[in-house]
């Protein structure tokens, strides 16, 4: 856990190294100050806590669905994407857990109902239908995650969580771009295949 925290700190890009300064109107009422205006470390407001829970649920799902996709797909691009999701989100989940532990935020242990349903739906599909459904779900998940990370950057109180968010947002946007590109490619291919069938 300690190792994860250190890699995370070292991995910060120079842009994000400076302390976040939030609007004090959003601090938790019981916040202790290290010095005037500067909350002592590892204290959280409700945004931090909700953020950690929602992003953990999302991150867990990325890994589980990624494993499922890597197993089911026969498309190289989708398989590479799925493996990348497993790797990147596994790493991010560990980072988040280490910060959350320090700030004593309880995190969900299992998949949330939304993602359970998505997994169940995906399990029933195969072939191109599966690839497209998986990617569509990934696009939506990454859109939501990007907004959640930006929310934490603007509204959180715990600087370590905020750094986690600013550090991971570029990666999430990169994933989103990959998913969108892949989805467009596969949908285009599916359309062409269907048209070829039709004109036979």
């Amino acid at each position: 856990m300690r190792a994860a925290a250190i890699t995370f700190a070292v991995g910060l890009s120079p842009c994000c190294a400076m302390a976040q300064i939030g609007n004090p109107a959003g601090l938790a009422p019981d916040t202790r100050m290290e010095k005037p205006g500067v909350p002592a470390p590892n204290q959280t407001n409700y945004q931090d806590r909700l953020f950690a829970q929602l992003v953990t649920a999302g991150g867990r799902a990325e890994v589980e669905l990624g494993r499922l996709a890597a197993e089911k797909t026969s498309h190289d691009g989708v398989s590479a994407f799925a493996n990348r999701m497993v790797e990147d989100h596994d790493e991010a989940n560990k980072q988040l857990k280490s910060v959350a532990d320090k700030s004593e935020i309880p995190l969900p242990e299992e998949l949330d109902p939304d993602h359970k349903k998505i997994r169940a739906d995906l399990e029933k599909q195969d072939g191109v239908a599966f690839d497209l459904a998986y990617l569509a779900a990934q696009i939506l998940d990454h859109q939501k995650t990007a907004q959640l990370l930006a929310w934490e950057i603007g509204s959180g109180e715990d600087p370590e969580l905020q750094h986690f968010a600013s550090d991971n947002l570029p990666k999430v946007l990169e994933h989103l771009d990959m998913a969108r590109t892949l989805h467009a490619e596969l949908a285009g291919q599916a359309l062409l295949a269907a048209e070829a069938q039709k004109s036979k």
Binding site: D114, V128, A133, Y134, A136, A137
Partner: peptide
């Protein structure tokens, strides 16, 4: 094929937090 995922997802999802 293209629409299936979206339909089931919206039916199940919570919105993002209000603020």
């Amino acid at each position: 094929l293209l629409g299936a995922a979206a339909v089931t997802l919206t039916a199940a999802s919570d919105p993002l937090p209000p603020d």
